[in-house]
Design a protein around this nucleic acid. Structure first.
Length: 427
DNA sequence: TCTGGGGTCCTAGGACCC
DNA sequence: TCTGGGGTCCTAGGACCC
């Protein structure tokens, strides 16, 4: 048999993370909110059954949440990121050929007979559950797109017990027929509508269209998807994580900002956060983009704008980047508006060790700057974010996110470590 | 009162060049 | 009625993913 792709996907990942350290939640409906406690971004099965919808504003679902006694959590990405690492480390045991696809998903390449890979998939489920507490579903197929499809279908079939193998029964064509086009990996909202208009409703029908038609209507990306649906692999495993080509930090504010100084502090903070990501992947940035937005949900004057500022030489030195971002903000700031969101993006990323020398400092200046940044990053990593920060970021942060329902950082903060209490043995 | 955040790739069309 | 022909590079916008 040719190689099989396995897609391992954590079930309701963020909600499952919250449950791991609070067993009382095991049978209760759970939802997790986006930053600023804005929208619902994860739901346990019970919450889905209760009718909570994905991506809906929290305040609109409040009544439903109260009625069903749903447990609500602010997003705790520090916890989810650490739990993700644990799951991925566990998965590595099962194949050297693995691609971490997102915070809660990985592709693995497996070999063996249909029966062997299926046993392996069940073993993966058991082990991840036992070692990390996270439930996962495994889809198996001859291409990544089919492994994705298998995973999606497995979640709908309680009998599958979390594993669906497209190398076995039920026959591939039955499965493709049961997969709506909108549920295909690579087919989004718009293409689904277009396909429906042409009478194509499921994956089997889509696989029957001519290459020419697909390419004309869905570009080469769509053609790859359809080729993979037919069982011919054309999307390979990405073994190592490629460095990002752009990096963005943006936030909605807990309360609107009108003041230039405060907005400048927020922009400086986002710049510092983006700069840390930049250095973590060993890059320097040539361009800084700053944007500011008012809230389109509010009935009041609107103003959105952005500005891109190039640096004289690519840099990963936070003070240089903050200065550059402040200059960009000056170009677009207008008084008199309630700003609700801002962001800082870096692009033109190059490896930090290939940066052109800048005019004044030369190599020596650059090395000093890099040493300072290494020290700052080390302190903030070991002692917590923003232990060391720049004056331009300000100390008050009146705009900081609302996170009223934040769970402890059980796995990454000594202060939040869960405590097991010994019980008197029963006599 | 309250509406998330962070990425990638492809294409069409304009600018510019010879 | 005719109004070159190609090539490259860049950007905006649209599609997708989690």
């Amino acid at each position: 048999m040719e190689t099989a792709f396995a897609l391992v996907d954590c079930n309701n990942f963020y909600a499952s993370c919250e449950r791991v350290f609070d067993p009382r939640l095991a049978k209760l409906p759970v939802v997790v909110l986006s930053n600023n406690d804005g929208c619902i971004i994860a739901r346990s099965e019970e919450a889905k059954v209760a009718g909570i919808r994905m991506g809906e504003p929290f305040f609109e679902q409040q009544e439903l949440i109260d009625r069903h006694g749903i447990q609500v959590f602010s997003a705790n990405f520090t916890l989810y990121g650490d739990m993700s690492n644990r799951v991925m480390e566990t998965l590595k045991q099962f194949s050297p050929q693995m691609e971490i696809y997102s915070i809660d998903e990985a592709f693995l390449s497996l070999s063996g007979t249909a029966g062997q890979i299926e046993n392996c998939a069940r073993e993966i489920r058991r082990t991840v559950r036992q070692w990390t507490g996270i439930p996962v579903t495994v889809g198996l197929g001859p291409t990544k797109t089919l492994a994705k499809a298998a995973n999606k279908l497995a979640k709908r079939m309680p009998d599958s017990k979390g594993v669906l193998n497209l190398f076995r029964d039920p026959a591939l064509n039955d499965c493709l027929e049961r997969l709506a086009v909108k549920d295909i990996w690579g087919v989004g909202f718009r293409y689904a509508k277009l396909l429906n208009r042409h009478g194509i409703h499921n994956a089997r029908q889509l696989a029957g269209k001519s290459d020419r038609w697909i390419k004309q209507n869905m570009t080469v990306t769509g053609l790859r998807t359809v080729t993979e649906l037919k069982g011919e692999p054309c999307i390979g495993l990405e073994h190592f994580t490629r460095p990002r080509k752009s990096l963005l930090t943006s936030r909605s504010f807990g309360k609107p900002i009108r003041d230039r100084i405060e907005l400048g502090q927020a922009v400086a903070s986002f710049t510092a956060a983006s700069a840390e990501k930049l250095r973590r992947q060993g890059s320097a940035a040539a361009y800084v983009h700053v944007f500011i937005e008012t809230s389109s949900f509010r009935d009041e004057p609107q103003y959105n704008n952005f500005f891109t500022q190039g640096l004289p030489a690519a840099s990963s030195y936070t003070p240089d980047l903050i200065k550059c971002a402040a200059g960009a903000l000056d170009k677009i700031f207008k008084p008199g508006y309630n700003f609700k969101r801002a962001g800082v993006m870096f692009s033109g990323l190059v490896p930090d060790n290939q940066v052109q020398l800048d005019m004044e400092g030369g190599r020596e200046g650059t090395e000093q700057k890099q040493a300072v940044m290494r020290a700052v990053d080390r302190i903030n990593r070991s002692r917590g974010r923003n232990t060391v920060f720049y004056a331009a970021q300000g100390a008050d942060r009146p705009w900081k996110m609302r996170q009223l329902k934040l769970s402890p950082r059980y796995t990454t903060s000594w202060a939040d470590l869960p405590v097991a209490q010994a019980q008197e043995p029963d006599r």
